[in-house]
């Protein structure tokens, strides 16, 4: 069986972690061809070629693919889909935008957020914010799936696949890019970090969110947030962890001032060790925490930062 893996490419560079994790899922399904699409994606294609288990890399260089707009990218994927039994992508915002469009153009269902590959037709995926896990068997000719990266280990390097140019498939011109507002940060990326420190509404303000950041920096970790913290403007939207934010599974997740609503748990309950700091001992977050500390975060978080390391 042949698999087309849509690589995550941002500003011409390969998002290695997301792509390598989706590659692990793809390898279980067959021989993997990686598609890199971008305004200038030669560098990303070279990177992808080095991943272990990649047979071939297709590089589609065209201005139309520079900003990840769904319509041209979906048309490109469909133009290349012939001969592939599976089209796989990591569950990123880019792929969640594109994959269902590809699936509908192929008249097949999409399998969103796959967490396990059972066999070539059968997959597990969480539903109801992760409160149930469904095993589904697809009867479609082509399986289009996005995979939840937090549940797959990243494939290593050591490959040396050939890179081929892929013909662009044109731009229907239905939408155009205006601007990106990307938060620059020296911290590790939320979805790949080994340690995540998240703050919730309990943090109280944008200024005090610095407490969370300082602890994260001390631990070399990433910063996360609950929806309430993002809605209140304490943290930017790309830090939201949960059902509709990012899904993370670090070795250590520290939740401070977060109550533990199921929609938040959906994004972090597969973390290896969970620490909860909350002043309400009844907070539901304690039900999933390995180590719970009933305390005021304004005392406990700075103390923790100071005493660590």
């Amino acid at each position: 069986m042949a698999v087309l893996l849509i690589a995550e490419v941002a500003n011409g560079a390969l998002a290695v972690d997301a792509t390598a994790k989706a590659l692990t899922a793809a390898k279980a399904l067959g021989d993997v061809t990686v598609l890199c699409a971008g305004a200038s994606c030669g560098g990303a294609a070279e990177e992808a070629a080095k991943l272990d288990g990649v047979s071939k890399v297709l590089c589609a260089d065209d201005a139309a693919y520079g900003n990840g707009l769904a319509e041209p990218v979906a048309d490109l994927v469909v133009s290349l889909a012939g001969g592939f039994s599976h089209i796989v992508a990591p569950s990123t915002a880019f792929a969640k935008n594109v994959a269902p469009r590809v699936a509908a153009l192929l008249d097949v269902m999409v399998l969103s957020d796959v967490t396990a590959v059972v066999d070539a037709d059968t997959f597990e995926r969480p539903i109801y914010a992760g409160n149930a896990i469904q095993t589904v068997k697809s009867s479609d000719a082509t399986k289009v799936l996005t995979v939840r990266t937090s549940t797959f280990d990243a494939a290593g390097e050591g490959g040396s696949a050939a890179v081929e140019a892929a013909a662009a498939a044109g731009n229907p011109g239905l939408s155009e890019w205006v601007e990106d507002k990307v938060a620059e940060s020296d911290r590790p990326e939320l979805t790949s970090a080994g340690i995540v420190v998240s703050g919730g509404r309990g943090v109280g303000s944008e200024e005090s969110f610095e407490l969370i950041e300082k602890l994260a920096d001390k631990l070399g970790g990433a910063v996360g947030a609950s929806r309430a913290a993002v809605d209140s403007g304490y943290a930017p939207n790309d830090l939201q962890v949960g059902q509709t934010g990012k899904v993370v599974a670090p070795d250590l997740y520290i939740a401070a001032g977060i109550s533990g609503a199921i929609q938040h748990l959906a994004g972090m309950k597969d973390s290896k060790i969970i620490v909860a700091i909350n002043k309400d001992e009844e907070a539901p977050i304690f039900q999933v925490a390995d180590f719970g500390l009933v305390a005021d975060l304004f005392d406990a978080v700075p103390e923790l930062t100071e005493k660590l390391g």
Partner: peptide
């Protein structure tokens, strides 16, 4: 197009403990 083979519960987390202080944590 997707036949539901099974719907199950997610893996349960083992019960954790409460710690009394930052030092203990």
């Amino acid at each position: 197009r997707l036949e539901i083979v099974k719907t199950g519960e997610p893996a349960e987390r083992a019960a954790g403990i409460k710690v009394g202080s930052v030092d203990e944590l």
